[in-house]
Computed example of a mutant assay.
Amino acid sequence: MPQQSTAAVGSTAAVGSTDPTDPDRRRPRAVLAMHPQLAPQLIDARTLARLTSLADLDPSVVLDDFTTPEAAAALADAEVIVTSWGCPPIDETVLAAAPRLRAVIHAAGSVKHHITDACWERGLQVTSAAWANALPVAEYTVAAVLFANKQVLRLAADFRELRARHDWQAAYPRIGNYRRTVGIVGASQIGRRVLELLRPFDLHLLLHDPYVDAAEAAALGAHPVELDELCALSDVVSIHAPQLPATRHMIDRRRLALMPDGATVVNTSRGSLIDQDALVAELVSGRLNAVLDVTAPEVLPEDSPLYDLPNVLLTPHIAGSMGTELHRMAAAAADELACYVAGQPFAHPVLAQEIHRTA
């Protein structure tokens, strides 16, 4: 894959003020590309005002199809595309219609759905708000880890059934978060944030990531181990690796069998990283527990046992940015647009040479 040029912004964006009152400030032409119904949910009034002050941007034009006459007119003069979920691929045809395009600012996570090889060949500057989307996922994960070690799912089901006083200490002698072992699979932006948030607790943190050495793992507050050892030692296994051919079913039947009785699997990454049939078998038996925000397929059939098992917390892919959290990603995009207008490098660039191993 061609290497990303580092000269595109510097060659086209004059260094200057981002102060909207500065009459000499440069305002590049920009266009929004995402699901039209998403735009008003993503971009609140404060951020919209900032975007339109930084760039010549018409908020009423939101593209989700680059083949229309409206898109052709918008792309002809566009220097920046601000994208989010629902942006079509930016391929050779789109780039031919956008001769002035120099940067793509993604107000969401992965850019793999719309950034093509042609973008790198053009030397486009690309940035993503993946770091901002990682924050709510990490918060969801930390809540799941702490609840898992308190065995909240099983205890709540028992309490619902008994509806009476009970010796819960005797029934659950091993619950708690003191000196429990949590295994983090993948030092992604989310995985790193999870480690950071878990650091103040009295937990033993393990990390498996083939790209992280012992010194870096120690700096993250974790002990590096191979994946088999992580599965065998962890009370909670939380998955934060990217969806790649090499990571499909990385948590397979054998590794699930390595996990201690009563362990919990937390998956906020992608359903394909787990052998779901093998996981369902373990969950139906009652040996393991799970917190699953993602599954394979993403929408399970109505007869899936995962809906009804008392040892499973199943949510519909909501760990990432939702509601007010969407506004953080739009604000992050506005920050990057300010960098571009000032002729400064992006704070969170996406690099061609690294995209093969990221989400």
Rank of each mutant, 00 (worst) to 15 (best):
R193E: 13
R160N: 08
R154L: 11
A171Q: 12
H166I: 08
F159I: 06
G183D: 00
R165C: 08
P173C: 00
Q189W: 06
R179W: 11
G191L: 05
N177K: 04
Y172N: 12
R154M: 14
A170R: 01
H166M: 03
L153V: 09
L162A: 14
G176V: 15
A164G: 07
G183W: 02
R160E: 08
G176R: 13
V182C: 09
R179A: 13
D158C: 00
G176L: 14
G191W: 03
A157Q: 12
R154D: 10
L155R: 09
I190G: 07
Q169M: 10
Q151K: 14
N177S: 13
V182R: 06
G186E: 00
G176A: 11
Q169R: 05
A171K: 14
Y178H: 15
D167M: 10
T181R: 07
T181N: 08
R165M: 07
I175P: 01
L155D: 05
G186V: 08
Q169G: 03
V152S: 01
L153H: 13
V182A: 03
L162N: 04
Q189P: 00
I190F: 07
Q151Y: 15
D167N: 12
F159H: 03
W168K: 03
R163L: 12
R192W: 00
R179N: 15
V185K: 03
A156Q: 02
P173A: 01
S188P: 07
D158R: 03
G183M: 06
G176I: 02
L162W: 01
F159M: 14
G183I: 00
D158S: 04
G183V: 01
D158P: 00
G191H: 10
L155T: 05
V185R: 08
L162P: 12
Q169W: 06
P173T: 04
R180D: 05
A157R: 11
R174A: 13
A157H: 14
S188Q: 02
R174Y: 15
R192N: 07
I190Q: 01
A156G: 00
R154P: 02
Q189C: 04
L155Y: 09
L155K: 12
A156C: 09
I175R: 14
L155W: 09
Q189A: 06
R154S: 15
Q151F: 13
Y178V: 15
S188G: 08
P173M: 01
A156N: 04
I184P: 02
A187P: 01
N177V: 12
S188A: 09
H166Y: 06
Q151D: 15
Q189G: 02
